Simulated assay, not measured.
Amino acid sequence: MIDFRYHLVSIVAIFLALAVGIVLGTTLLQEPAVKSAQEVAAQLTKSKEELRTQLDALQGRESGNDALITALTPELVAGALTGQRVLLVETPGSSTTVREAAQQVLTQAGAEVSGRASLTEKFFDPKGVGVLDGLVNQFKPANMIFPATATSWDRAAMLLSAAFVTPDQAQANTPNPATADVVSSFETGGLLTTDGDPVKRATLAVMLAPEKPYEGENAEVQAGALVSVAGALDLAGKGTVLAGTIATPAAPGDSIAALRDDGEVSKRVSSVDTADMPAGRVTIVYSLREQLNGRAGQYGIGKGASAMLPTVTTATPSPTTQSGS
C-alpha cells in the first residue's frame, strides 16, 4: 500500500511541477497562484520522501523476517512429512522459483517428491474438451464412476489423479495398473508433461497456481477447471494444497479465489496465497500435515484466507484411509 502511495505521490508531483512551469512561463502576474502551487509541490515532495522512508523501513523489516524464517525453516518443518510422497503439479503460468523453493522445503520436512506433472495450456483450453473426453472414454477403468454433474475437466482430473496419487500408504511408490497408459496418452496429446517418476504414486499433492489470474471471456471457466484438478487430486489421495501468490487486484480468473469460493471443494482442499514467501512455504508443509489429519484451511493474506497458517499439530495419518481429506 505504501509502495502504491509512493508512486502515486511521485506522479502527482511530476504533473504539478509541469503545471507550475506552465504558469511561470505564461504569466508573472498571478503570484498568489504560483506561490500556492509551489507550496503544494513542496508538500508533495516532502510526502514522497516520508513515504520512501517508510517503504524502505518496511522492506528492511520484511527482509529481516524472511531471513529469520529461512534460517529456521529446517527446524520448523523437520519430520512433518516423514514417510509421505508428494506430487508437484504445475499449471501454465506458475512460478518455477516458487516450485523449486516448495520442493526444497518439502524435502526438508522429510517428504519424498514423486515427480512433477505440468499441465499445459491445451489442457485448460475450453476448445479442447473434446480431446479430454475422448481420452477419458478410451482409458477410464470400468470401475471408475463419474458424478452426473461432472464436467470434462472433472472426469479428466479424476482419471489422472488415479494415476498420480493414492490414499493407501502400501500402494505409494507403485504404479496404478488400472491406469497404465493414461499419463503417456495425455502426454502424447500435448495435455501434460512429466518430470521424475510421478506414475509411482504419491500420497499428497501440491498444485501450483498461475502467478497471474486467467484473463478473457473464458477466465472463470479456466479457473474452475484448475479447481476441478485440485479437488480430484484431494479425493484420490490423502490431501492436496493449492499454492500460489495473492492476486492484486482480485480478478474472476484467480484460481485460489475460485477454490475458496467453491463451497464444496474448499472444505477439502487447502490453499496458501503466500507461497512466494519463506513463511508461506512453511505454511504449505503445515497445510499438508493438517490434510493428513483430515482437515483443510485457507491460509495467507488474501481474500478468503482464515489465518496466516494452520494450528501447529502433530500428524497422525492412518495408512488405511481410502479417501481424500
Rank of each mutant, 00 (worst) to 15 (best):
A225Q: 07
L226K: 10
L226F: 03
V227A: 09
S228H: 09
S228W: 05
A230N: 00
G231Y: 11
G231W: 07
A232N: 13
A232I: 03
L233W: 12
L235Y: 14
A236F: 06
G237A: 05
G237S: 03
G237F: 05
K238I: 00
V241G: 00
L242S: 06
T245K: 10
P249G: 02
A250D: 04
A250T: 07
A251K: 09
P252T: 11
P252W: 13
G253R: 08
G253Q: 08
G253H: 00
D254L: 08
D254E: 12
S255M: 12
I256P: 10
I256R: 09
L259R: 12
R260Y: 07
R260M: 02
D261A: 13
D261R: 14
D262I: 05
D262G: 06
D262M: 10
E264M: 09
E264P: 02
V265D: 00
V265L: 02
S266L: 04
K267F: 01
K267C: 01
K267E: 13
V269I: 07
S270L: 10
S270Q: 08
S271G: 05
V272Y: 11
D273E: 04
A275P: 14
D276I: 00
M277W: 03
P278M: 09
A279S: 13
G280F: 08
G280N: 07
R281I: 05
T283N: 06
T283H: 01
V285N: 11
Y286W: 15
S287G: 03
L288Q: 06
L288G: 04
R289E: 13
Q291L: 15
N293A: 13
Q298F: 01
Y299E: 04
Y299H: 01
G300V: 04
G300A: 03
G300F: 05
I301K: 14
I301R: 15
I301H: 10
G302Y: 04
G302F: 07
K303V: 14
K303I: 14
G304C: 04
G304Q: 06
A305F: 06
A305G: 01
A305P: 02
A307Y: 12
M308L: 15
M308W: 11
L309M: 14
